[in-house]
């Protein structure tokens, strides 16, 4: 029998739990698994590395208009055009 610790420190439990976002207040935008197959810090590791506020909530990101505006995305340097 396997325990919760897998090869990369990710086990069967963590892989099978997702966050169902309704108001987004108690979900971490980068760190919680809530959209897509993995947390955004894994899906977009480069963006996560550059993000200034790594523990911002989903609600705060949407309040700042992450879908369209630039204000929500605060980086530690300017992004390259391809980033």
């Amino acid at each position: 029998m396997r325990d919760g610790v897998g090869e990369a420190g990710v086990g069967w439990f963590k892989e099978n739990v997702v966050r169902k976002v309704v108001n987004g207040a108690n979900t971490l935008f980068w760190l919680d698994p809530w959209v897509g197959e993995a947390p955004l810090c894994v899906q977009f590791g480069r963006l996560y590395d550059l993000a200034l506020n790594k523990s911002i909530s989903v609600a705060d990101m949407f309040m700042l208009g992450c879908e369209e505006g630039e204000e929500a995305w605060q980086w530690c340097r300017r992004l390259w055009t391809w980033e």
């Binding site: 892989e15 099978n16 739990v17 997702v18 966050r19 169902k20 976002v21 309704v22 108001n23 987004g24 207040a25 108690n26 979900t27 809530w34 959209v35 897509g36 955004l40 899906q43 977009f44 480069r46 963006l47 989903v58 609600a59 949407f62 992450c66 879908e67 369209e68 995305w73 992004l79 391809w82 980033e83």
Partner: peptide
């Protein structure tokens, strides 16, 4: 990359009806 990330987010709309919760993916 930011573009792809935004595409993922474009389908999502938050609602104030209740709070977020954890879901067991398998069931």
């Amino acid at each position: 990359m930011l573009g792809e990330c935004r595409i993922l987010l474009s389908n999502i709309s938050l609602q104030q009806t209740s709070t977020d919760r954890w879901v067991w993916r398998l069931d």
